[in-house]
Design a protein around this nucleic acid. Structure first.
Length: 482
DNA sequence: TTTTGAGTTGTTCGA
DNA sequence: GTCGAACAACTCAAA
């Protein structure tokens, strides 16, 4: 008689540690089919972008390698998830299937259909909490409604003191993977055809086997001064874990426990501040779950009537890092080159697109989606609605970042500018954030011809700011409607 | 029930 | 140079 098997359907949980779906499969004692299905068309409008696919390619290779250490083989499929599952079920004598939950609106709907379809044929189909510290339904305010302000949300989260975490040991895996047709990872064509990915390659090592070492480097070098250092884009002040978290190559629960278990007084403030950022990730996912329309509509509907400008040239200049505002351009070029941008600079470039160019936050969200290796629907949506002032706990309308002031404050020496804008290499720090104000002889000496070697500012910030305030003032007396 | 105070990330203006 | 106020409207909890 053929041995029964269980499917572990890997999705955004590309890890073996703290993986409840894998635990559940192992507990059955059956043979195991680790499965990844590439079904981009089921992600709704939000098909993974080029940087995200690049990351996924190498992450799948890493997962494959880790599974092989235990004699298991990662099965790769492409197409509609339910059809592929059914095909694998047929060829593999499968009696149960396990996966860890995702929270994107189109995926929630799809997974619900898949679960009921599988169960109706008598299979055991179970999903687990693995990628959040708290399920969306576990946290609500006193009226039983979802929080819309972060601080009370996080306070309420912290009252739940128990966060599960699986310590199941993997060393005694005795089962194997039956022979089943599988694609090669290469055949998914996740890598770019033109080789623009050099910058990504030199910046990142995707895969869960690297996530842990990045966390421990951060703990020993960054955590203590995290509250202050995290705002300086040229410093090594942040964890760089965002892409690993998005793909589930490290679980938020293992980060939570690792950080909490550090017993050093001098790290206490850093621990609280860092975990709070993990809280923002939770907040974003809960909001996306409760307010699914926010992926492309403002939560506060009166912002839908905001008079956005249609400005393809401005949008292009922003995307290419040619706005003439060095801190904005440096950020956009860091993004293009490495697939990532420092958080402080994300706010600055976001504010510039939305408040200075008056281009809609949706355009910004789309560009970030295509270019970020950590592109995450929940975080991206929350971040852009925050900048746009139209979401939950959004920035107040009058909070318009001044790109010069921000540059001078957080990159005083211009180190970040120098790294990303070689045209300004010889510019003294005093003028590096506002080259258009530099005296002629300084520009000459620095071999800068504004408008030729580096752009003149495409908008005047002060004028743009007043225009934005005026436009926002027009919304003042509108009411939100359902 | 009503009121009060606080709320990730800022800027400008006038004293 | 430094400092506080003003810049909405709304959410949420505590008083």
């Amino acid at each position: 008689m053929t041995k029964q098997t269980a499917i572990v359907w890997f999705r955004q949980d590309l890890r073996l540690e703290d993986n409840p779906a894998l635990d559940a499969a192992l507990k059955t004692g059956y043979d195991i089919i680790p499965l990844y299905i590439w079904s981009p068309e089921e992600e709704g409008k939000w098909i993974p972008g080029a940087a995200s696919r690049w990351w996924l390619h190498y992450s799948l290779l890493d997962l494959h390698e880790q599974l092989s250490k235990y004699g298991l083989k990662l099965i790769i499929r492409e197409g509609k998830a339910l059809e592929q599952l059914q095909d694998v079920i047929q060829s593999g004598h499968v009696s149960c299937i396990f996966w860890n939950r995702r929270y994107e609106p189109s995926i929630v709907i799809r997974d619900r259909q898949i679960k009921s379809a599988l169960r109706s044929t008598g299979l055991q189909a179970e999903s687990y909490k693995a990628n959040l510290l708290f399920e969306p339904h576990e946290i609500s305010n006193k009226q039983g409604r979802p929080f819309q302000v972060f601080t009370p949300f996080w306070k309420s989260c912290l009252l739940h003191n128990k966060i599960e975490y699986s310590l199941m040991i993997r060393n005694d895996i005795k089962v194997s993977t039956p022979k089943i047709p599988s694609l090669e990872i290469e055949s998914l064509n996740l890598l770019p055809k033109i080789h623009w990915d050099q910058g990504l390659k030199s910046s990142w090592k995707p895969g869960s086997s690297h996530a842990k070492e990045i966390l421990s480097t951060f703990i020993s070098h960054g955590l203590q001064h995290y509250p202050q250092e995290r705002d300086y884009p040229s410093h090594q002040g942040v964890s760089h874990l965002s892409p690993y978290l998005h793909f589930g190559e490290i679980s938020p629960r293992s980060i939570w426990h690792t950080i909490r278990n550090i017993k050093k007084d001098e790290l206490e403030e850093g621990k609280i501040a860092y975990l709070r950022q993990l809280g923002w990730r939770e907040f974003a996912h809960h909001l996306l779950y409760h307010f699914p329309k926010t992926v492309d509509h403002p939560l506060h509907s009166k912002y839908a009537s905001f008079p956005w400008r249609n400005d393809p040239a401005g949008l292009k200049a922003w995307q290419k890092g040619l706005t003439g505002y060095p801190i904005v351009d440096a950020g956009m070029r860091e993004l293009w080159t490495t697939g990532w941008m420092h958080n402080r600079v994300r706010m600055i470039v976001g504010s510039f697109l939305v408040k200075d160019l008056l281009i809609s936050w949706q355009e910004g969200a789309q560009w970030f989606w295509d270019t970020l290796v950590d592109a995450d629907l929940a975080n991206n949506t929350l971040g852009w609605q925050w900048v746009g002032g139209c979401g939950a706990d959004a920035a107040p309308y009058f909070r318009i970042f001044n790109p010069v002031t921000q540059g001078e404050k957080w990159d005083g020496n211009g180190d970040y500018i120098l790294r990303w804008i070689p045209e300004l290499a010889k510019m003294p720090a005093q003028w590096i954030h506002k080259p258009w104000e530099a005296p002629v002889e300084i520009l000459e000496k620095a071999e800068i011809k504004l408008g030729k070697t580096y752009p003149k500012p495409i908008v005047d910030h002060n004028e743009a700011r007043l225009k934005a305030l005026e436009a926002l003032n027009g919304l003042k007396y509108l009411e939100d409607k359902e």
